[in-house]
């Protein structure tokens, strides 16, 4: 839509635009305020630290997805997407538990687990960059493959395990903040610096948004997309440790997290002026969801509602941002 058409719109619509812009942060604050008033102990430092810790697994996975979406563009069908993240976490957790139980030493077990996550990322990167499959299909297929591998490894059962690392992650505290919360913040900080404040991140945005421009500037576009899948794989590996710590081993059904991860990464988009996926936005979306679930628990609302609320949230946010985009021109 050219500027003249925007100007041609009545004041009310321009006002609506402003409301839409501020709406997402406003809604977040509103939800927090309502929960703070209604749910007992909601604002206690212990509870807040708890929410951070419980959000760690989902959040770290969502960071990985955010990187992929940035590098591949935000078109969900043709753009960047990694549906294998949750399955990758499951496999990594299973690999770590097996290695740990088989008596590998700490460094080896950790190294091999992260390597497993990276390998899955590399497989996705290969199918997307070299074979040029649409990411949606490529990662859907690899998700199936990886979930199968996890089943083979665990025979569809829980593999309990215990190690000093997991103990530290599960029980450790520093400044009265649990270790898992620190993990979430640390990964957010690292990726935030990499994606939002380094030339690499800027170039990744360019690759995702306008690959021709990136190519014309001499960037090797494929390499950047590939690297974003590697980051996602690594995130799955890191999240696997958090999951293993949280559940004292590998669990089944980690694939169920996938849709929440997708929801969070796309929710994060609205927390940015440019309406693009970004790490701080994803962190906010993770916490929003974490606070919601926590508030529901405190209010004794059945957990069955959580999915529905997530669904409504995605739809609301996406409808809002697509309206915003329509107002601002382009499709």
């Amino acid at each position: 839509m050219p500027w003249s058409e925007i100007l041609a719109q009545p004041l009310a619509r321009r006002l609506g635009l402003l409301v839409l812009r501020r709406g997402s942060s406003g809604a977040f604050l509103l939800i927090l305020a309502v929960l703070a008033v209604t749910a007992p102990n909601f604002l206690s430092p212990g509870n807040i630290a708890n929410v951070f810790a419980q959000s760690a697994i989902l959040g770290i996975l969502a960071f990985g997805l955010t990187c992929v979406v940035i590098g591949g563009g935000s078109n969900v069908v043709a753009g960047g997407l990694d549906l294998s993240l949750a399955a990758n976490l499951g496999l990594c957790a299973a690999v770590y538990s097996s290695l740990n139980n088989a008596g590998f030493d700490t460094v080896q077990a950790i190294g091999l687990t992260l390597l497993c996550g990276l390998a899955v990322g590399a497989l996705n990167g290969f199918t997307v960059v070299v074979l040029r499959l649409p990411p949606l299909l490529a990662t859907l297929a690899s998700m199936n493959l990886i979930a199968g591998l996890e089943l083979v490894l665990t025979q569809n059962s829980v593999l309990p395990t215990d190690s000093a690392l997991l103990d530290t992650l599960a029980m450790g505290e520093w400044l009265q903040v649990p270790a898992l919360a620190w993990m979430l913040l640390a990964v957010a900080l690292l990726l935030g610096l990499l994606i939002q404040h380094s030339p690499y991140g800027l170039r990744l945005y360019a690759v995702g948004e306008y690959p021709e421009a990136a190519r014309a500037a001499g960037l090797r576009v494929g390499l950047y997309v590939f690297s974003s899948y590697l980051i996602a794989g690594l995130c799955a590996g890191v999240a696997a440790f958090c999951s293993a710590a949280y559940f004292s081993g590998s669990t089944t059904g980690s694939g169920d997290m996938l849709l929440s991860v997708v929801a969070i990464a796309f929710l994060g988009v609205v927390f940015s002026r440019r309406l693009v996926a970004n790490i701080p936005g994803t962190l906010l979306a993770t916490l929003l969801l974490g606070f919601l679930i926590n508030g529901f628990q405190l209010l004794n609302i059945a957990s069955f509602w959580v999915n529905g609320v997530q669904g409504v949230l995605i739809l609301l946010v996406v409808a809002m941002s697509s309206a915003l985009r329509k107002e601002e021109g382009g499709l």
Partner: peptide, 28 residues
């Protein structure tokens, strides 16, 4: 080029120095 090969969501500064970014150590 005929098409303006600049990503739309970049600021003027980001677009101008794209691929020759001004850095402070590893950071922009």
């Amino acid at each position: 080029h005929q098409e303006r090969l600049l990503p739309g969501s970049f600021t003027v500064g980001e677009a101008l120095f794209f691929c020759h970014e001004l850095r402070y150590g590893p950071f922009l």
